[in-house]
């Protein structure tokens, strides 16, 4: 092998190393995208997501000059013999005010089971202003057969909520827990 060719081989090896490094970086980037997306959603309210753990009460003064309607919607995903009802369909709050809404969970099935309510806020630009101090959606719930349980949602609408938004809908979808997908293969 001539010197030129040797040099060329070294250069090729260097290029390959660099491209592989780039490749590894992109793989890392892809993996990082998942948590980044969640953080991004929480910060911006993208896709109507709210924080997944309790937030502290915001200190801004209550804006008594403005009222916002908060509407609750509940839904059951397939597979959980529970009922979830919002005890109030809507509540009116002043931005900054700490408010409470109650939800009733009933297990109408024949055995102990667990479920989790997944929240979603619309319009999504309102999601980041929806602060939750206490919510059953932060963890999964267990109910005995026939058990009924009332659970509170303590929340606050941030006074920074954009002017145009005067109604927020919070939807809870109740999902069974501990079920892997592909469950239908088991008959």
């Amino acid at each position: 092998m001539s010197r030129d060719q040797q040099l060329q081989q070294q250069n090729v090896a260097r290029t390959v190393r660099r491209v592989l490094l780039g490749l590894v970086l992109m793989v890392g980037f892809t993996i990082a995208l998942v948590p980044l997306y969640d953080v991004f959603c929480e910060v911006t309210g993208l896709n109507g997501k709210t924080a997944s753990s309790a937030q502290v009460v915001g200190g801004a003064p209550v804006d008594t000059g403005r009222r916002v309607e908060v509407q609750f919607v509940t839904r059951n995903a397939p597979g959980l013999p529970w009922r979830l009802d919002a005890m109030e369909q809507t509540v009116w709050v002043h931005p900054g005010e700490v408010a409470l809404a109650r939800f009733a969970f009933v297990n109408v099935g024949q055995e102990l089971s667990s479920g989790r309510a997944v929240p979603s806020v619309s319009p999504s630009q309102g999601a980041r202003y929806f602060r939750k101090m206490e919510c059953f959606c932060f963890q999964e719930q267990w109910l005995e057969a026939g058990e009924r349980s009332e659970m509170p949602l303590v929340f606050q609408i941030d006074p920074d909520l954009p002017e145009g938004v005067n109604k927020l809908t919070l939807a809870y979808t109740l999902y069974p827990q501990g079920q892997a997908i592909g469950g239908y293969h088991e008959q």
């Binding site: 490749l23 992109m26 793989v27 995208l33 979808t173 999902y175």
Partner: peptide, 29 residues
């Protein structure tokens, strides 16, 4: 080089969701 790893990542997440009970794309989890 830039985007094929992203495709590989996304189908791997699908594989995990389907076979290993993760929920990258499943609201339930």
């Amino acid at each position: 080089i830039a985007v094929m790893p992203v495709l590989a990542g996304v189908i791997t997440m699908m594989l995990l969701d389907i076979n290993f009970g993760t929920s990258f794309f499943d609201a339930a989890g």
